[in-house]
């Protein structure tokens, strides 16, 4: 369970780091005497740091990490695909970045089609025609449904209607 302990130590370090960053940001806020707008942030920053330290110490002292041994399922049969996660994140980021200029209709079709492909299970074959049809239908239905029924104008972008 050494891997588990290492993982928990990293988590503790990140928790502590978050607390420290928040503390530094708080210290840069304008303040005056007595109770001011920095009072609660200081309290929170201290709490975050203390909890991070506490976690580090507990894990460090434990002979083997108790945390998460049962629920995290080390060596579970499900393989984790880092590549799929990164590609998915890149797709979402690209979708959001281009949404305003290219427009909702086009970007949604492109995003959905690519995301369907990326997430298609390895045991199945990608059905390009069905994917494209679903992508177009979803995009059009959502765009006009929100425009007509819910008065929400999604970015029209290049297609101007």
């Amino acid at each position: 369970m050494a891997a588990n302990k290492k993982k928990e130590l990293i988590i503790g370090a990140v928790m502590l780091a978050v607390g420290v960053v928040y503390l530094v940001l708080t210290a840069r806020l304008p303040s005056h005497d007595g109770i001011d707008a920095t009072f609660v942030p200081y309290l929170l920053a201290t709490t975050l740091c203390v909890l991070g330290l506490l976690h580090l110490v507990t894990v460090f002292k434990a002979p083997q990490a108790v945390e998460g041994t049962s629920e995290e399922g080390e060596g579970a049969p499900e393989t984790i695909s880092v590549k799929t996660v990164i590609v998915t994140l890149a797709l979402i980021a690209g979708y959001v970045a281009l949404l305003q200029h290219v427009g909702f209709l086009i970007m949604t079709v492109v995003y959905l089609y690519l995301q369907f492909l990326v997430l298609t299970p390895v045991t199945q074959k990608a059905n390009h025609i069905a994917y494209a049809a679903i992508a177009v239908a979803t995009s059009v239905v959502i765009y006009f449904l929100f425009r007509e029924a819910f008065d929400l104008l999604l970015p029209s972008g290049l297609l101007n209607f």
């Binding site: 949604t108 959905l112 299970p121 679903i134 979803t138």
Partner: peptide, 27 residues
């Protein structure tokens, strides 16, 4: 199938966030 359902949900998330005050910042 999940690989069809979840991307559509994501698009709905984007619409929901944008609908708050029509700004990409929320997305």
């Amino acid at each position: 199938p999940k690989h069809i359902l979840l991307p559509i949900i994501l698009v709905l998330c984007v619409v929901g966030a944008f609908g708050l005050s029509s700004r990409i910042f929320d997305v």
